[in-house]
Design a protein around this nucleic acid. Structure first.
Lengths: 226, 226
DNA sequence: AATAATTGTAGCATATCGGTGATAATATTG
DNA sequence: CAATATTATCACCGATATGCTACAATTATT
């Protein structure tokens, strides 16, 4: 899958960091064009086609939401907002996000990358069913796709179900018994150690994102964003 | 299920967006009445019955927590706070939530909708335990997460149980024997000094919030809000 | 039916936790 | 201030929980 992104961001440093990261991580399959202000961004949108636009809410001269509306009047392209937490909360939450999404600063590049991939996939698909995202992992309950660090992952059924349950309850400490109840059902009378086993395989399958599954001794497991 | 909601929020736009969303989504089964300031809200509460109140913490003239206390003096109705993240965190933590909950901006309308439904269900049903808060410490009996000064804390089982017991009885002086009974059970015949040991580790784990556990000489321990 | 993939079991290695006792530090009492 | 009682802290080792591996049993696929 190849995609073209437009990044509208006034801070030179951030622009560069994001561009570099995406170039390296996607190995060229994602191409980023950068604009430093709204006008430049609008011009690029008219002359080029993009699959996704990353938009800083705080831009000089024009704010991201206004720019977004202008973009929408020309093209129907998904927008991912970059926003600082306090200052733009109110506007953001009054804004009808539609099929868009937002990410609040500070954020990790990996997180941004994961979210972008999720949005791209969502946009290319049919329905805009919300995708579960937790740190570097995404799980789509409709398409049943799982990605870790932007890459597609194949999971065995049990592994998938465990991950899905955890993704629905991020940061919850989930006991082995709970998992046995929810996934195996009431008619399973084996040892809870079986959960360990599948969790182990799940961690492996997730690669470096496997560390997001934390063990909480004597309690169970917990899926975290890091 | 049909429910009446009161929304107290000064921003016209937000009020409208929320009202519209709930009307559309619930297909009329949830009726929202909106108030733009605290006084109007109080009047409505006296004249009407509501199943849930959504309260912006930042209101002109009066803050949400104060308003909430006044509401409580009249009616025992669950309250959902809307709060921006950084600015109101401290107050929120110090506030005894009771059967209430809060949601931080920015949030999606779907998220708010889900939370409201959860609260309504909880209120109509029996009980679902809310998060315990004491000073800078929070403990969620459902997710088993513990935070101190806003940061997630990892606790060993015994430490967790001791803290949980104390959080359920803030400001009580709890004897070592009581803790031994409640946590170790009747089949423990060692020395009560063991409690000291775990309390020590607990204090360490809590970092600067560890000072909230006070020793009451010859009596036991006490968890305070400072 | 044969093969492959997945699931469940068992056991050992390893990390973490819990309890003990001694000693230091602190508070209380006379 | 000295004597006493109470609590804090530490290091140690046994107990417990988890990670990991290999293999058997089951199920799905061809």
């Amino acid at each position: 899958m190849s995609a073209r992104l437009l990044l509208v961001e006034d801070d030179d440093q951030i622009r560069e960091v994001i561009s570099d990261y995406f170039n390296a991580k996607s190995e060229g399959s994602i191409k980023i064009t950068a604009a430093s202000d709204g006008d430049e961004g609008l011009n690029l949108i008219q002359s080029d086609d993009f699959d996704l636009i990353i938009l800083d809410v705080m831009l000089p001269h024009i704010d991201g939401f206004t720019l977004c509306r202008r973009i929408r009047s020309k093209k129907d392209v998904p927008v991912l907002f970059l926003t600082a937490r306090t200052s733009e909360d109110d506007k953001l939450y009054g804004y009808e996000l539609g099929c868009d999404d937002y990410i609040t600063k500070p954020f990790s590049l990996a997180e941004l990358y994961a979210k972008v991939n999720a949005l791209l996939k969502r946009a290319s698909g049919t329905v805009s069913k919300p995708e579960l995202v937790c740190g570097n992992i995404t799980l789509n309950p409709v398409t049943l796709n799982v990605t870790a660090c932007g890459k597609d992952i194949e999971l065995a059924p049990k592994e998938f179900e465990i991950l899905a349950y955890m993704m629905k309850h991020p940061n919850w400490v989930i006991s082995r018994d709970t998992l046995l109840d929810m996934i195996w059902g009431n008619d399973f009378y084996g040892s809870p150690r079986i959960v360990d086993n599948h969790v182990k395989k799940l961690r492996c399958a997730l690669g470096s994102a496997g560390t997001q599954i934390k063990t909480v001794i004597s309690k169970g497991y917990k899926l975290t964003e890091e």
